[in-house]
């Protein structure tokens, strides 16, 4: 039996919103330590890795490992029915064909209960082991989202060039070009506004703008995003959860 109670429905809402345009359905793997997901988009370019650790939940129990195949569009519709501040409890029996979803209003005496039909999903898993990292950039997630949106008006590719003291985001398109440079900054009063860049090797990588548009849908999950880049390798974009993470692995573009 699985039972997990979120202090606020908004957290699961944000997680599902961040994933559903990239993958339509995925397996939620539930263990005594928490819930994890690995899912790849249809084009095999973008991979989502989600970990919701047990400590994220107000209450959590999972007696036996269970895999729950979930249609994210359907889950999103049902979760959308609850208020952001509601308690949200998900539960499933060991051999369940449905996920039970309960919202509890914290003020009114109101409980809403839904069942989501589960799917049998046969998905390939990729072996994403520990990766070397040449450069790590941490910046406010809203700033990164704005950079991606702004650069997308120019080109379907975004080039990221990292040197010792700056990260350059560059777009070259038919109508013109754009450059945005960010530099490390420590903001003691507003640590969430700080920018850090650590570098072992300079980086010059290009990524597809449309995939970055999917990634930045996770912006509301965390005030910061950490971008890990390695020469000629997928970029890793990580949004931390209160306990766990939502990570995206994005395959780079190469010169033809």
């Amino acid at each position: 039996m699985l039972e997990g109670k979120f202090e606020e429905a908004s957290l699961l809402k944000k997680i599902v919103e961040a994933m559903k345009d990239c993958v339509s359905s995925c397996n939620f793997n539930c263990t005594e330590n928490g819930i994890s997901v690995q899912a790849v988009d249809n084009s095999r370019v973008l991979l989502i890795s989600l970990l919701i650790e047990k400590d994220t939940f107000e209450e959590y129990r999972c007696d036996r490992n269970i895999t729950l195949g979930v249609g994210l569009g359907s889950l999103s519709k049902i979760i959308g029915n609850g208020a952001n501040s509601d308690y949200l409890t998900i539960s499933a029996d060991d051999d369940a064909d449905k996920l039970n979803i309960i919202f509890e209003d914290k003020v009114k005496d109101k409980i809403s209960e839904y069942n989501l039909k589960l799917l049998d999903i046969d998905a390939d898993l990729l072996d994403v082991g520990p990766m070397d990292t040449d450069a790590t950039i941490t910046l406010p997630s809203a700033d990164f989202a704005k950079i991606c949106k702004d650069m997308k008006v120019l080109s379907e590719s975004l080039q990221i060039i990292v040197t010792k003291d700056s990260a350059l985001f560059q777009s070259v398109g038919d109508i013109g070009t754009g450059n945005i440079v960010i530099r490390p900054k420590t903001d003691i009063d507003h640590p969430e506004e700080s920018v850090t860049i650590s570098l072992d090797k300079p980086i010059d990588l290009s990524f597809g703008s449309k995939y970055l548009s999917d990634i930045i849908k996770a912006t509301s999950l965390s005030q910061k995003v950490t971008i890990k880049l390695t020469d000629q390798s997928p970029g890793v974009f990580e949004y931390k959860l209160p306990s766990g993470y939502l990570r995206f692995y994005l395959a780079p573009k190469f010169d033809e």
Binding site: L46, L47, L125, L126, G208, A251, K253, E256
Partner: peptide
């Protein structure tokens, strides 16, 4: 013009 690679070039299947 740049070509999009896929993750299968970097990660093996489990």
């Amino acid at each position: 013009k740049k070509a999009q690679s896929t993750l299968l070039s970097f990660f093996g299947k489990k």
